[in-house]
Design a protein around this nucleic acid. Structure first.
Lengths: 143, 143
DNA sequence: CCCGAAAATTTCAAACTTGAAATTGTTTTG
DNA sequence: CAAAACAATTTCAAGTTTGAAATTTTCGGG
């Protein structure tokens, strides 16, 4: 007796969540042990690395899919560690741009290669065909 | 110029994380607005629903991929709300079994159908063939 | 039997996260 | 222009999460 389509979607979601949580756990461990940092800090720095010119707080929280309040506190900590800089906008006094400092950039570059290698290691079992199929499906899930 | 395999794996991971976070956000919103509860509480109750006879705290945190300390605090709150019960083991005084109370069971049954429908709605774009392919890949990612 | 290793859970401090409210600034519109 | 609507950020309380340390209990080997 086969599951209903809705039950199959549910099982898929549970499996997806399991894979994601397990991978996050491994990355968290990697960042903690090898680099003394955390996943949320890494995520913020990675977003700022991709947008080297700086982003507003709102853009940042949209990129990371976290609340504004959350972005504020992580940026606060990175700022007080000198890894990130806030610059008020010249044209709109509500707006603040956040960007990596030179120190933040250097630290992130030290992390990025290791992070990429760790991700590649975790998902080493996936062939190019798997990646094609998975990416296609994920794109449609996002839409 | 095509990406290296390791870069492709990294992009896939970022996309996977994005899809998962977006879905978690929708589910969180659904549970909050429709049922006045949260994702971690739902997760614990779902695990206890699947193992109706009860589980130890260690089993519970392994099932949910969260730390022991985390399981303790969520169970504490559910217990003080009368949705969950702790029962000391007869044979090993270190061990505690956790199970849904009658009230917890009733509440979860009220949630489960809506949750399943919400998940089915979010992933309604996936065909059976997609589910087959995705499930196959996720199984291999888990191993 | 006794002791040290291992196991199950809780406790704890620090960090993370959310969602709502507050603050400050901009824009639209009557 | 003034007021109301809207926008960007921070603040805040409550809850979640981690990882390490502490507590209690069990178990195995001498």
């Amino acid at each position: 007796m086969s599951d209903s389509l809705s039950k199959r979607r549910l099982k898929m979601w549970i499996r997806l969540l399991g894979v994601t949580r397990a991978a996050e756990g491994e990355l968290r461990e990697f960042l903690r042990v090898q680099h003394g940092t955390t996943l949320p800090r890494f995520d913020v720095m990675a977003a700022l690395y991709r947008r080297r010119e700086g982003v507003t707080m709102s853009e940042l929280s949209r990129m990371l899919l976290v609340s504004n309040g959350n972005a504020t506190t992580v940026v606060d900590r990175l700022e007080s560690d000198g890894l990130v800089r806030r610059t008020p906008s010249e044209t709109d006094r509500r707006t603040v741009f956040v960007a990596l400092t030179a120190e933040g950039l250097a630290q992130f570059e030290g992390l990025a290669a290791g992070h990429e290698a760790e991700v590649a290691r975790m998902f080493g079992g996936l062939s190019e065909a798997d990646l094609d199929a998975l990416t296609d499906i994920l794109k449609r899930m996002g839409a």
